[in-house]
Amino acid sequence: MAERTVPSSPQTSSQHPPSQHAVPPQGGTGTEAAARVADVLLLFTGGPEYLGVSTISRKLGISKAVVYRILQSLVSRDVLATTPGVTGYRLGPAAVALGASALRRFDAKTAAAPVLRRLRDETGETTTLSGLVGDERVYLEQFESRAEIKMTVDIGTRFPLHAGSSGKAILAQLPEWRREEILAGDLGALTDRTVTDPATLRQQLDAIGSDGVAVSLGERQSGAGSVAAALVTPDGEVHGAISVCGPEYRFTPEKIDRYRTLVRDATAEIIRNWANGKATGGHRS
């Protein structure tokens, strides 16, 4: 039997619950309510398709009564929906439309596409684009390797920033205060190679920040290797990261050194494309 492509798709985000953002005490009731609605919606971007009141209440630490009111409001606007005979709530047509619109309008996706396609052809490995979402990242685009054995990713799946090259590349470029907030949170292990010690992570992030490139060998997904760099605009805003990824056994020291240069150059080109698109009013769908 022919060997199937490996590694398998990434682990689902249900193994690492969405981060919970505390609302600053000075925030008014309106701010708190908006934050709670946002937190409820973010739960639906990872994990099971259907979520119930009790599950949401437990994950976010808010009362079932408050959760129920939020859910009913979102259902009335088609952001969430229910299915007859199925317990729980799922994303509704309005949420799907919003998501599709966001992906179409994400400037970096358009700017990155030709660069990632060429990078895939140069390396022979899958190339990806991740976007920063809250304190996590999500895959927005991939150009799959043409090799029989390859790595693929799940578009739209969220992952923590402390595990894997794309996450660490992003985390290394965030402001120190934000990085420290993340390192003070849940640093769960996704594999037996995931670094979960904050002190060790700080050392790694300092090195990544200086070099501009992160390397992962089995840290986020067993058997996978990747090299990534963050997408940072000239004003210092971090938007995401790009990566070259594939089976770990193909990521030899020689290839990693080569990919470092290619990925670093690719991010610079994407940022230039992005800036030029904005300056000329080019199509950014």
Rank of each mutant, 00 (worst) to 15 (best):
S226Y: 04
T87Q: 14
R193S: 14
A228Y: 07
Q203K: 13
I155D: 05
V133N: 00
S243R: 09
P25R: 15
P7R: 09
A169C: 13
F143Y: 13
S73R: 15
Y139R: 06
R120N: 15
G47T: 04
V53L: 02
Y68S: 04
E269D: 13
K64P: 01
D78P: 05
T280V: 12
T128R: 02
Q203D: 13
V79A: 15
V138S: 13
Q26I: 03
A2V: 05
I149G: 11
I182H: 06
A279S: 12
P84A: 08
S57L: 02
L41I: 03
R193Q: 14
G131Q: 06
R258M: 12
L205N: 08
D186K: 14
L183H: 05
Q142G: 06
G218E: 00
A34G: 06
R250K: 11
G85S: 07
L183R: 08
K150R: 15
V215W: 08
T82L: 03
L119D: 10
A241T: 04
A275T: 13
S63A: 11
L80R: 10
S285Q: 11
A214C: 04
A81Q: 12
Y50K: 10
E49L: 07
R118D: 14
G236V: 02
G52M: 02
V232W: 07
S226E: 03
I256G: 08
D206T: 14
T128P: 04
G212F: 01
R118H: 11
T83V: 10
Q221Y: 08
R178V: 00
E248V: 12
N276E: 15
A113M: 09
S76M: 02
S216L: 03
Q72G: 06
T261F: 14
G218T: 01
A65H: 03
A199Q: 09
P48W: 02
M1F: 07
E248T: 05
A34S: 10
I62W: 01
A97E: 11
Y249P: 05
W274Y: 15
I70Y: 04
F106D: 10
P175K: 06
R258I: 08
E219G: 10
V227C: 10
Q221S: 14
R36Y: 00
D78Y: 05
S130P: 00
R220M: 12
I70L: 05
V213N: 12
G212L: 08
R77F: 00
L183K: 09
E248K: 14
S222L: 10
R104H: 14
D39G: 06
A2Q: 07
R120T: 13
A229D: 09
G282S: 15
A207K: 14
E269F: 03
Q203G: 11
V37N: 01
L51N: 07
P198I: 01
A163D: 01
R69T: 00
G52Q: 06
T194V: 02
D211A: 12
L231N: 08
T83E: 14
L201Q: 06
I155T: 09
S216C: 04
P10E: 09
V263K: 12
R104Q: 15
A229S: 15
R250H: 07
A241K: 04
R105D: 10
E237P: 00
A97L: 10
V40N: 02
G236E: 03
S14R: 11
E248F: 00
A95C: 05
A268N: 12
T126P: 13
T267G: 10
A172T: 05
V215N: 07
P198F: 02
Q72K: 09
L43D: 01
V86Y: 05
G236N: 05
S9K: 15
D265M: 10
